[in-house]
Computed example of a mutant assay.
Amino acid sequence: MSQSYCMKEGKSYACMGWVEKYFGDCLCNIKDEISFGFGFMSLICWGVGEIHPIITNFCTKSSHGVSLAFLFTWVAM
């Protein structure tokens, strides 16, 4: 296993185990933890916000409300 980012940067801050395990990233300081937390919350909020349109489109068997630009942006990310 390769060295984590914290070790390469010479920082002795202990990594959060689950972040290193599932995301392959090391949070070396409080700023990294805050940044990761906001990013993770953003993804969760975005995912929860999409549940209703997905269920509605599935139940109506229609994709009329789905923007082509949204799909291209979603795939590009």
Rank of each mutant, 00 (worst) to 15 (best):
M1Y: 11
S2K: 08
Q3Y: 12
Q3K: 14
Q3W: 10
S4K: 05
Y5P: 00
Y5A: 03
C6K: 07
C6Q: 02
K8H: 04
K8W: 10
E9S: 07
G10A: 04
G10D: 07
G10T: 08
G10N: 07
K11F: 02
S12M: 12
S12D: 04
A14P: 03
A14V: 06
A14M: 13
A14R: 06
C15N: 05
C15K: 04
C15S: 08
C15E: 04
G17L: 07
G17K: 14
G17I: 08
G17T: 15
W18F: 08
W18I: 09
W18A: 03
V19I: 15
V19P: 04
E20W: 15
E20S: 12
E20R: 13
K21P: 00
K21Q: 10
F23R: 06
F23S: 02
G24V: 05
D25N: 10
D25W: 13
D25T: 12
C26K: 03
C26L: 11
C26S: 01
C26R: 02
L27G: 00
C28W: 02
C28H: 02
I30W: 15
I30D: 09
K31E: 14
K31A: 10
K31Y: 14
D32A: 13
D32E: 11
S35Q: 11
S35F: 10
F36H: 12
G37H: 07
G37I: 08
G39I: 08
G39H: 12
F40V: 04
F40S: 10
M41Y: 12
M41G: 05
S42L: 07
S42E: 11
S42M: 06
L43S: 11
L43V: 11
L43F: 14
L43C: 10
I44K: 01
I44T: 08
C45R: 02
C45T: 12
C45F: 15
W46L: 13
W46D: 09
G47K: 01
G47L: 07
G47C: 07
G49K: 06
E50P: 00
E50M: 15
I51H: 03
I51E: 00
I51C: 03
I51M: 08
H52V: 06
H52M: 10
H52P: 00
H52L: 11
P53M: 09
I54Q: 01
I55Q: 03
T56L: 09
T56D: 12
N57Q: 09
N57I: 05
F58Q: 03
F58A: 06
C59Y: 14
T60R: 10
T60V: 08
T60S: 14
T60P: 01
T60H: 04
T60F: 07
K61P: 00
S62D: 01
S62W: 02
S62I: 05
S63F: 14
S63A: 07
H64R: 13
H64Q: 11
G65A: 14
G65V: 03
S67D: 13
S67Y: 10
L68P: 00
A69R: 06
A69V: 15
A69K: 10
F70P: 00
F70A: 05
T73D: 12
T73I: 06
T73F: 02
W74F: 15
V75N: 13
V75Y: 11
V75F: 11
V75R: 02
A76L: 05
M77L: 13
M77K: 07
